[in-house]
Amino acid sequence: MGFEKFGHISFTSQTKVADFVDYLEKGEVRGTQCVSCKRTFFPPRADCAWCLASEVEWVAVEGEGKLVSFTKANYAPTGFEADAPYILALADFNGVRVFGRLSNDVPEKDTKVGMPVKIKPISLPGGQLSYEFRTT
């Protein structure tokens, strides 16, 4: 339980990596790392398919990332209409890739592939938790 705080519309609330939400609440974005092979996973996984092992540790995604690609979505799917437009993006933090939204403070014309971004946990209306990319 707890993972429903990260969700929105027909969402799964049960996962072994629900601690992700507890870290968001504490102001951190974390992925997992396999204890034996040291592969880092984002999105976090509870199991390592390469070692067939289920011992993972939480590791922070932090520092300066780079924008891999982005798009300004002018239309939103059902349930997200009030949010549009918003910028969806993929960013790379030293080899760990994260999908999310870019902060509304950053206009599209100032958004460039390769630009540096940071990742920040955020609170949404209704007690939901998420994260976003920022430029400052």
Binding site: F70, T71, P77, F80, Y86, S130
Partner: peptide, 28 residues
């Protein structure tokens, strides 16, 4: 919902947006 419902759909994703990410990467 055909995308990852745990980690991507919560951001409000749609098919055009995903292909748009590929287009931008190709342009760049």
């Amino acid at each position: 919902r055909g995308a990852d419902i745990m980690w991507e759909s919560p951001f409000g994703t749609m098919m055009p947006a995903y292909y748009a990410l590929h287009a931008r990467a190709h342009f760049d």
